[in-house]
Design a binder for these strands. Sequence first.
DNA 1: CACCAGGTGGAAC
DNA 2: GTTCCACATGGT
Length: 253
Amino acid sequence: MMEYRLDLARTLDCGQAFRWTQSEDGLWQGTAGGKTLGVSQHDLSPVMEDAFWRNYFDMDFDYEGAREALAASSPVMAKAAAFSSGIQILNQDPWEALCSFIISQNNNIKRIKGIISRLCCGGCFPTPEQIIEIGVPGLRAIGLGFRDSYVYDAAFRVHSGLIDLDQIKTLDVPEATEALKTIRGVGDKVASCALLYGFHRLECFPMDVWMKRVMADLFDGMDGRDLFGPLAGLAQQYLFFYARELYYKENSI
DNA sequence: CACCAGGTGGAAC
DNA sequence: GTTCCACATGGT
């Protein structure tokens, strides 16, 4: 049994965050909450010794225990969990996560990163007020495509108080989902991603095309929320990584 | 030049 | 209820 350890590459480059880059020497650099970080896999002390980053990387959650619990749920999940060691669920900013996953729809990771990079313009992720200031034509110019009005609507609703992100933290997942879905361009999948990655609701199980395929092929079409319960979101990340990196390659389908 | 990308809204059955 | 399709953009 290998010792468990945060895996930066798997955690930062698996589609839950879009603002981290790795330089040739292996250093991961990113920004969150107005702070910047540079950290390498061989020395995680910059994460361990700073309260903000410790929380951001979710270092105080019992991932070993969670992995054991998930592995006990089924042989397939046990394989996926064993293969996906080191993936953790980040504590990202709710607003940034919400916008990021609106932008992610019908889009690819590379372009998502480019759009978000241009939105941030080297600094912090724009506030709702700054998004409103940019305006729909400005967002279109940045390359959001048809998602421009979606992000603008999110900004408008948060700025005006129609959506209260702090209050959403207090709602249960079905209520929070319904609240988020009042935003144009937010459906079940985007809401689920925002809640999992931005609000740390580990029971959320984002169903994208890949997960539909995984659940059909490996779990006889069962519902991941029923199978994995309060750890469904973590299970989803393991299965996503396992399926794309191993299962569908070995089986060449 | 077609087709795709970790979807969604809306119309048409 | 379900099934289609357009949606803007850059990459194969």
